[in-house]
Simulated assay, not measured.
Amino acid sequence: MAFLAALKTLVREHPGVALELAGAGLKKAGTEILSEMKARIGSGRPERR
């Protein structure tokens, strides 16, 4: 609950910083997703047994 209060304060008092943090988080998530997709595509189709 304290985290949400801190987040609320950050957004209300420092919206620019909050936006930069959100953008950095989205960039990191997108990078991880692309990396995972490339790994799965690169591994090819699993063999049937």
Rank of each mutant, 00 (worst) to 15 (best):
40 R>C: 04
35 S>A: 12
33 I>V: 14
39 A>F: 08
16 G>L: 02
13 E>P: 10
28 K>F: 03
33 I>Y: 06
35 S>D: 13
36 E>Q: 13
30 G>L: 12
21 L>P: 03
26 L>C: 13
13 E>S: 15
49 R>E: 15
47 E>F: 07
25 G>I: 01
32 E>N: 11
18 A>I: 00
48 R>V: 11
17 V>L: 09
23 G>P: 00
26 L>W: 06
31 T>A: 14
47 E>P: 00
23 G>H: 01
22 A>W: 00
40 R>P: 00
19 L>T: 11
22 A>M: 04
20 E>F: 07
39 A>I: 08
14 H>N: 13
25 G>Q: 04
33 I>M: 12
14 H>Q: 15
30 G>N: 07
48 R>P: 03
41 I>S: 02
15 P>N: 06
26 L>A: 14
21 L>V: 14
39 A>G: 05
29 A>G: 14
17 V>H: 01
37 M>T: 10
25 G>W: 00
17 V>E: 13
14 H>G: 03
23 G>D: 04
42 G>K: 10
23 G>Q: 03
49 R>P: 15
37 M>F: 07
46 P>K: 09
31 T>Y: 03
35 S>T: 13
49 R>M: 07
47 E>D: 07
37 M>V: 15
46 P>S: 02
15 P>R: 01
45 R>A: 12
48 R>Q: 05
25 G>H: 01
32 E>Y: 05
16 G>D: 11
41 I>L: 13
36 E>D: 08
30 G>I: 02
47 E>R: 14
45 R>K: 10
33 I>K: 11
48 R>H: 07
24 A>H: 03
34 L>Y: 05
25 G>E: 03
44 G>A: 04
17 V>T: 14
31 T>K: 05
37 M>D: 03
24 A>I: 01
23 G>S: 10
14 H>T: 12
